[in-house]
Design a protein around this nucleic acid. Structure first.
Length: 245
DNA sequence: CACCAGGCCGTGC
DNA sequence: GCACGGCATGGT
C-alpha cells in the first residue's frame, strides 16, 4: 500500500513539510526535496525516513482485529506511516508543541529555520543544528514569540546529547524526563517520532478524549506491540471527526 | 469575555 | 504521591 502523504506529513508528527497542489516539499539533509507519491520517496532516497520497510500490513491487520473503533481509525488513513525523524529536530519540535496547536507549532518551527538555519536557496532554510541554535538567547526567542518555551529551547541546545540507540525505552524515557521542558507527553513524542520506539503511546488532550470515550480504564498497552502506530491512527481520526459511536 | 491547543514546572499538602 | 495555578501566544 502507498504511503498516505497527507496523514503522514501533515498529522502532527513533523512540522517541516509544505503541501501545494499535491506536492509535498521540505528541506532534507541540506537540500530541498519535493515528492508526490511513494515512487518519489524511493527515487529521493527517503525510504528509511518514510519507514517503508516496517510491516505496516501486519500491524494494520492486528490493530483492526482488536476493536471496531480501532478498525474504524485504521480505515480512516491506512497508509499512515511513523516517520524516522532526526532526534535533535524531533526534540526541539515537541518542546515547541506543548500546550500549542499544530498550525502554530509549524509557524514557530519555520521561524527557527529562517532565523537560525542555513539557507538552501529559493527562500528555504534547513532546520538549525544544535550549534546554530546554541547562539539563540532567551530574550531573543521571546521577541520571536516563543513565550515560556524560550528557556526550554536554550536549555535543550546547551545540554543536548543523543540517546544511545540500544537504550531500552523505559530508561530512555527517564533520561528525557530529566531535561528541562520535557515531561511525559513530550518525552513519548520524542521516543516515537525521533527514535521510532513503537512501544510508546503519547497522551495529549486529544488522546485523553479518545481513551476516556472509547477505551475507558485502558491504556496504550492495549495495542502492544504497536502502541505508537495505534496512537497515531486514533489521534488523526479523532481530530478530523472520523470516529463515531 | 471565555476556552482551547500534541503540557510542564513549582508549590503545597 | 497527587492536585492546583501560572505560564506565552494566537485562534475561535
Amino acid at each position: 500500500m502507498d504511503v498516505d502523504l497527507k496523514a503522514t506529513l501533515c498529522g502532527g508528527q513533523c512540522f517541516s513539510w509544505k503541501e501545494k497542489d499535491g506536492v509535498y516539499t521540505a528541506v532534507m539533509d541540506g537540500r530541498l526535496v519535493s515528492i508526490r507519491n511513494t515512487d518519489d520517496i524511493r527515487r529521493e532516497g527517503l525510504s528509511r525516513y518514510f519507514d517503508l520497510d516496517y510491516p505496516y500490513g501486519e500491524a494494520r491487520a492486528y490493530l483492526a482485529s482488536l476493536s471496531s473503533v480501532m478498525k474504524q481509525a485504521v480505515s480512516y488513513a491506512p497508509g499512515l506511516h511513523i516517520l524516522n525523524q532526526d532526534e535533535w529536530c524531533a526534540t526541539i519540535s515537541f518542546i515547541l508543541s506543548q500546550n500549542n496547536n499544530i498550525k502554530r507549532i509549524t509557524s514557530l518551527y519555520d521561524t527557527l529555520c529562517r532565523t537560525y538555519g542555513t539557507s538552501v536557496g529559493d527562500g528555504s532554510y534547513a532546520f538549525p543544528t544544535q550549534e546554530q541554535l546554541s547562539h539563540a538567547t532567551e530574550a531573543e526567542l521571546r521577541e520571536l514569540h516563543f513565550g515560556y518555551r524560550s528557556v526550554y529551547l536554550v536549555s535543550a541546545a546547551e545540554e543536548w546529547k543523543p540517546i544511545p540507540r540500544d537504550l531500552p525505552t523505559e530508561e530512555a524515557r527517564k533520561e528525557l524526563l530529566r531535561r528541562k521542558g520535557i515531561g511525559p507527553k513530550v518525552a513519548d513524542c520524542i521516543l516515537l517520532f525521533g527514535l521510532h520506539r513503537m512501544d510508546t503511546f503519547p497522551m495529549d488532550t486529544w488522546m485523553k478524549k479518545v481513551m476516556s470515550r472509547f477505551f475507558p480504564g485502558k491504556d496504550g498497552s492495549l495495542f502492544a506491540p504497536y502502541e505508537g502506530l495505534a496512537q497515531q491512527y486514533l489521534f488523526q481520526a479523532m481530530r478530523e471527526g472520523g470516529l463515531s459511536c
